[in-house]
Design a protein around this nucleic acid. Structure first.
Length: 421
DNA sequence: AGTCCACAGGAAGGGCAGGCGA
DNA sequence: TCGCCTGCCCTTCCTGTGGACT
């Protein structure tokens, strides 16, 4: 094909993006403002909490070490946004020489004592060769490096540990014990801790000394109600959407649906964003309540898909066993599932795990919301977990058999079903 | 009141991977 | 290359448990 002809065809043919670019736009500015990572300049209905935290942090502006703080509240109640808001405000004062630095760690992403220390220490080290490795060092060594780096800064450092309850449940309170007494070893710098947690009860797992040092101040974030969520959505909608792009019932519906989920502002914003993007893709200029309901279903399904896809192979095998068993009976016990799981393993030539391990994997699936499990006693029938799937069977089965390991299940299915009976 | 069932779940430890320093 | 470190996945062993049954 001549070069001239290629150019001609490129000009003549409609581009695949044309219909999306030329359609009337719903968004007037950056839609990233609807994502949880965006920290707005105003946080409606969090004035009291902001004031409390600012009051605590302001001690640092006068050269003293602020008290350690524990912040509690359910998902989407504005805990992280409030802390980051305060950090931004402190950064503005920093330019006038306040000397406060915030270091933020999400303990969901960085979820071992070692990796938290490694992550924090490396924040201060520019040269990659001088950084702590992902593993290989003793915890004491990484901790010493962190202390050394902090002391070099000659500043007040506020360490924010988000999702702290998860870290404590997973690894205990050793890290908090060390961090809460770090100031004893520092000469030039000071460290304060801000712990953010969903679960109020996680402090029961802390050593008494850690508990008292860490919880010098406590702030509790209550869930937003539908009215408050509406206010939040209206402010963001004014910033992001074109005039008249939302029908009148969209914001109240998003707020009402999110209020049902323990007042989760993150969910409310996600509903609004997904609904608007769906209307935009279909070339419409107005978002309707129907888009919001569709968005709700899409988000739920996407969450399940993402969770199932990222499961380890043995958990996928276990989940597939549950789906197979659920075709016979909706509610099942650990013993029921284990029998099916072993048959499935044999049919596709995989070494099965022990029942003890499977018990743990069932608990993990329960925590992820894929199944609902509760311990029940059947008297002489024994004590076991009663398990019910919380995901759609057909869609989840299709996702699972796409897995490399389980693809052979398709072939072995006929053989397997005879062994199951 | 004691027995029994079918596990739940804690504790301890093995094996492995990935990385470091000597 | 070897010893050491941490994290992770897993097994084995063990005790505890709730409620129906005897």
């Amino acid at each position: 094909m001549s070069e001239q002809k290629v150019v001609h065809e490129t000009v003549a043919r409609a581009n695949v993006f044309d219909k999306y670019i030329s359609s009337e736009t719903i968004f007037k500015s950056n839609r990233e403002m609807l994502r949880p990572s965006y920290i707005p300049k105003i946080l409606p209905h969090r004035e009291r909490e902001i004031d409390q935290l600012a009051g605590i942090v302001s001690t640092g502006l006068r050269g003293d070490r602020p008290s350690n703080v524990l912040i509690f509240g359910k998902t989407g109640t504005g805990k992280t946004a409030t802390v980051k808001f305060i950090a931004n405000e402190a950064a503005r004062v920093n330019s006038a020489g306040s000397g406060i630095d915030f270091i933020y760690v999400n303990c969901c992403e960085v979820d071992t004592n070692y990796s938290v220390l490694q992550h924090m220490a490396n924040k201060f080290i520019e040269n990659p060769e001088e950084r702590a490795p992902y593993n290989g060092w003793s915890i004491e060594r990484v901790y010493s490096l962190f202390k050394e780096m902090v002391d070099k800064q000659k500043r007040l450092l506020i360490v924010v540990l988000d999702e702290l309850d998860r870290l404590v449940y997973k690894t205990g309170d050793d890290l908090l014990y060390n961090l809460s007494r770090i100031n004893d070893d520092l000469v030039n710098s000071k460290v304060s801790l801000v712990g953010i947690a969903n679960d109020l009860k996680f402090t029961d797992f802390l050593d008494a000394r850690v508990k008292s040092r860490l919880g010098e101040e406590r702030i509790v974030f209550s869930p937003y109600d539908a009215k408050e969520l509406s206010d939040i959505l209206k402010i963001r909608a004014d910033m992001v959407f074109a005039q008249g792009a939302l029908s009148d019932d969209v914001i109240p519906l998003c707020a009402a649906l999110a209020a049902q989920e323990h007042g989760d502002a993150r969910r409310a914003l996600e509903l609004l964003r997904v609904a608007a993007e769906s209307a935009e893709r279909e070339g419409r200029s107005i978002v309707s309540a129907g888009d919001v309901l569709q968005a709700k279903n899409k988000i739920e399904l996407d969450t399940v898909t993402e969770t199932v896809k990222t499961l380890p192979s043995q958990s996928k095998m276990l989940l597939l066993s549950m789906i197979i068993y659920a075709e016979k009976r909706r509610i099942m016990t650990t013993g029921d599932i284990y029998g099916t799981y072993r048959n499935l393993c044999n049919s596709i030539g995989v070494q099965p795990l022990t029942q003890r391990r499977i018990g743990d994997l069932i608990s993990e699936l329960d925590m992820l919301g894929i199944v609902r499990a509760r311990v029940r006693s059947f008297g002489r029938g024994g004590r076991t977990k009663e398990i019910e799937l919380s995901v759609p069977l057909n869609e989840t089965r299709e996702l699972l058999v796409d897995d490399e390991l389980l693809s052979s299940y398709k072939n072995a299915r006929a053989k397997f079903q005879t062994t199951l009976i």
